[in-house]
Every structure is written in structure tokens, then in C-alpha cells.
Design a binder for these strands. Structure first.
Lengths: 280, 280
DNA sequence: TATACAGTCTATACCAAGGATAAAGTCAAG
DNA sequence: CTTGACTTTATCCTTGGTATAGACTGTATA
């Protein structure tokens, strides 16, 4: 093999790249063969052109387009390279951040699945101690209980747009719920214009709110339309046991399959009222 | 706005998605509008269809293709969802791993740039203490000093193919060098058929080798063709100062621009011989 | 020298996941 | 009834390649 005059096939093999790709790079001016036979059109490469190919492959890993790579290589400037690297480092960092959030969202969902499987289903009331969590509230312009699912979806759309506007990570969107403020709950007023989402501790700074650890009277259900009824049942329980309500009512969506029924959100929610049991 | 009968524009706006994308999803069967006017072809969506759109967007974040998303949503199976999530978590994890390596490679390069700027240039000999490092060696079928740059490039190609064959991260490829074994160095035999790359500590397990911390007699140069001469100069220094060579000679490529000269690798290397100075 | 066969050439089409545009048809408000 | 905003389909464009066809070239062998 003459390392100074490699055919396209040899060059491709040495660099673990396809011949078509080399032809493409030639066409777009990213890597011209050192010599092209005018009569036959055959391309001949010098092995030292691999250096440029290495650079191209690196830059591709950093997520640059071929056009930008070409422009950059044409600039031919070492300072620009340092600037570029810094910039790419930032982008890679951001991408990692985003993926970490995705991963967290996936794990949260899987965790919820597992919890769900071990949970009393179908409306049975149970007591659970839940450690502290951080939530972010968003206030909508409608009352959740005035509507059917349509209203809930609308609230979610508002929340989603808000997240986008504020550059908050969309991955949080997979773990949402609704709130009834304690005062409305106690006065029997079915009113909720707030949705919330659980956020990581590190986002505490961003207007997030601490929900302290507490004992909750809980209930799980898959029936959207019976939430109102479920709230009443929980409050009956609270009264019967002489409990004191110590915070807002949360309705957390723990499993959400838009899968099972074509088009319609099919979800399982867990309603929670934080209480203090009376001292005997 | 009638939430039960949204036009494509309204649906697009509520979900922060383009109309074209909705039409595309309709065409490929990923999300059909709830109702299509037969006469005019107008699409009308129900807001609850946003649920499916949420699901699609999530799955896209996990890197799934539209085809796979459609197939999955058609399966309509909750167990499959859990399996999918686990699988996606694995993929996300892997991607994060890979990006972390990229980041490390970028930072290493930037770091080398900075070091280079503060370094004696142009062949001046200097003494430097270098902490321990981990390297991975690869033995080629040619002697580096028998060739010109052509041979070096060829060795690099062999190394790269080896990395690919062994599923080692390609990002290491950005920080390479050549070795002269101590015995060859001492006998004045210019022989090197080994290239190496620096690896992270966590990859120690994979046949990596510890280069202990030591004091090095060093020299930086940008002239590829003068490496042989530079080795001799370093060894002269070693002899003049009565030093003892305590390990292999390393020639580390610290800056590599295939940028400056069209096609040709333009690099700055730092040669290093680990020594012990005589006790006075 | 003829032939076989591997390698290479150009041209074209294809992929995903949309974006952009044009020309025509539709809806709703004044 | 008109106007302007909206929607329709159809077609082309993008990026970074892959795949194919049909023609041409290079080299080894008979």
C-alpha cells in the first residue's frame, strides 16, 4: 500500500469511514483528495490527510455541522480553536445537564410505577409518611373543579407554556399534580386553580417551595371524574379520626399513560392530605 | 376558543409545535386529529389529544424515532412502557458517559493549550515535575524513526482501528504520543514501535499502566523532523548532569492543529525523559 | 492480448424530521 | 359581500449520510 497515494477505498478503510462519505466531503469542500486524476476522475489521498479527517470527526462529536466545520477549518486560526473548544465545552455541559434531567425524570416515573404496584388501589384510604419534597406552583386562570378533563388539559397547556417561557426544563412536566389550598379544603370549597410539579433540590432557588415531611391521608384512583368525591371521602376520614389538617391538599399524578386509550390521558393519581393525628 | 374542536393553528399554539409537524404526525399515523372535515379536509383536534403529544415529545427526548414511537403507542401495553423506560434510562446513561468523555477530552486539550503558552518554547530544555498519569500502550508493526510523518500517521491509524475494535472511547485519541523504551534510549538505539494515549483513572482496569510521578527533562518543539535530534540533545543534558534515567522516554503531542496547514498535521510535542538527579 | 473481476466514477434516489413556500380553497367578522 | 386570516395539498429544501445503477478503470491471470 503506497501511503502517499491511497485510493478512496484504502483511505476509507484506514480511517474507518465509508467511500461515500469521503466523496461527500470532497463535494462539499471539507476534504479534497491531494490529487485527482483528470482523465479518470479517480481520487488519490495522502495518508497525512487523515489528520484533517481526525479533526472533522472530533468536531462532529462536539455536535458541529459539516458547514461550520468547513468554515472553521478555512479560518485557519489557532485562537479561534481555543474559543471554539470553550464554546463546545459549554454546549456539551448543557447537553449533559439536560440528559441528567431526562434520566431523573425516567427514574422518577419508574419509581412511581413500583410504588403504585405496592399501593392500595381502587380508592382504599391509607396512611403514609412522606419525606420532604420541593414543588413549583403555577396558577392558572380557570378552576379545575369547574371543568371536566378538558379543563385539566388546558391547565397543563398553560403550565407547559410557562415552563417554556421561563426556560425551565421540560422534563419536570412528567411529574405534575393539582393543589387545593388548605383554607378552601377546610371550608369545603372545591376550588383549585393551581398546578404544581416536583423539582430537584438543586432547583430550589428558582421559586420552588418546600413541602415539609408529614403524615398524609392518601388514596389512589384511576378515575378522573371521581376526584371530587374522593376529596370528600378523605375529609370524612380526617374528621372521623379527629385529625388536624396541616397543609394543602395535593393530587399527584403517579402514572400517566396516554397509551391505553387512543388519544385520551389515562392516569392514576394519588391524593394526599397532610395531617396530625390527635394525641390520645 | 372551543377546547373540544381546535383548529390546527390553535392546537399547534397550545402545544408549542408547528402546524407542519402536526400534519406530518397525521400523515404518518402518529396523531390523527379527532375529526377531519371530509369536504374541506380541515383538521380538528380535541385538547385531550395533547396527552398523546406530550408522550410523543417525551419519547423524542429519549431519542426514539417517530416510527418506533408509533409502533410503541400502537402496542398499547403498560408493561412495555416500563421496559421501554428502563431501556431508555440505559441509553441516556450511556450517552451521558460518552459526553463526559468528550468534555474531558476538550478540557484536556484546553489545559494543554494553557500549559503550552507558559512553557519554554523552541527547543529550550527545562526540568519539570509531573504527577502520576495513566497511559495505554499500543504496539505497531513499524518503527517510528524509520519513517517520516507518513509512518507516524500510519501508526495513528493502527491505534485508531485498535480503539474501535476494542470499543474504547475515541475521545482518548485526542491526546496521544510515542514511547522509546528505556533500554533503547540508553543504548542510543532510535527505536519506537509504540504509541500511547492518556486515559482516565477510572479506565485503569483496562490494561492501562501507571506512569509514576517523576522529575522530567523536557523540551517542546513544533518541528516533527527534528525529534531524533531533540532526543540526542536531551540525552546529552542527562549525561552532562549525571542524571539517572528512571523510565521510558515519552513524546507527548500537546497541541494538534490540522488547521494551520491545509491537510498536514501541525503539532507541538513535548518530549520527556524521567530522571533522578545525582545527590551532591 | 483478452478477459475477468475488483475498484471507482457520476448520477440519482432515499432516509428522518421537519421547514419553507406557493397556489388554491375556507372561515368568520364587519 | 368583501377582506383578511387561516388551512389545504404539493413540492422542494435541509443534514449527513446510505444505496443503487450503469459506466468506466486498473490489475492480475490465462
Amino acid at each position: 500500500m503506497d501511503l502517499q497515494k491511497l485510493t478512496i477505498g484504502q483511505m476509507a478503510e484506514l480511517n474507518h469511514i465509508s467511500e461515500q462519505t469521503l466523496r461527500l466531503y470532497d463535494r462539499v469542500g471539507l476534504l479534497k483528495p491531494q490529487y485527482t486524476d483528470e482523465r479518470t476522475g479517480y481520487r488519490y489521498y495522502h495518508i497525512s490527510q487523515s489528520a484533517r479527517l481526525d479533526m472533522i470527526q472530533n468536531m462532529k462529536v462536539y455536535g458541529m455541522t459539516l458547514r461550520r466545520i468547513r468554515e472553521f477549518l478555512e479560518e485557519n486560526d489557532a485562537d479561534a480553536l481555543q474559543k471554539l473548544l470553550l464554546e463546545q465545552a459549554g454546549q456539551v455541559e448543557e447537553r449533559i445537564e439536560q440528559l441528567s434531567r431526562s434520566r431523573a425524570a425516567i427514574m422518577r416515573t419508574l419509581d412511581n410505577f413500583k410504588r403504585y404496584e405496592a399501593m392500595p388501589k381502587n380508592g382504599e384510604i391509607f396512611i403514609e409518611f412522606i419525606p420532604e419534597r420541593h414543588i413549583y406552583r403555577y396558577t392558572c386562570d380557570v378552576n379545575y373543579f369547574d371543568q371536566d378533563e378538558t379543563g385539566y388539559e388546558y391547565m397543563l397547556r398553560q403550565l407547559k407554556q410557562h415552563l417554556l417561557r421561563c426556560n425551565m426544563p421540560l422534563s419536570y412536566f412528567s411529574n405534575v399534580g393539582t393543589v387545593i389550598r388548605k383554607e378552601h379544603l377546610l371550608s369545603g370549597n372545591m376550588f383549585s386553580n393551581e398546578v404544581f410539579l416536583f423539582v430537584d433540590e438543586k432547583d430550589k432557588a428558582r421559586d420552588a417551595e418546600l413541602v415539609p415531611a408529614a403524615t398524609y391521608v392518601c388514596l389512589c384512583s384511576a378515575e378522573f371524574s371521581r376526584e371530587r368525591e374522593n376529596v370528600l371521602r378523605l375529609m370524612d376520614y380526617v374528621r372521623e379520626h379527629g385529625c388536624q389538617v396541616v397543609g394543602d391538599y395535593l393530587c399527584e399524578v403517579i402514572v400517566d399513560f396516554p397509551v391505553l386509550d387512543f388519544d385520551k390521558r389515562q392516569m392514576i393519581y394519588k391524593t394526599q392530605i397532610p395531617v396530625c393525628f390527635p394525641k390520645k
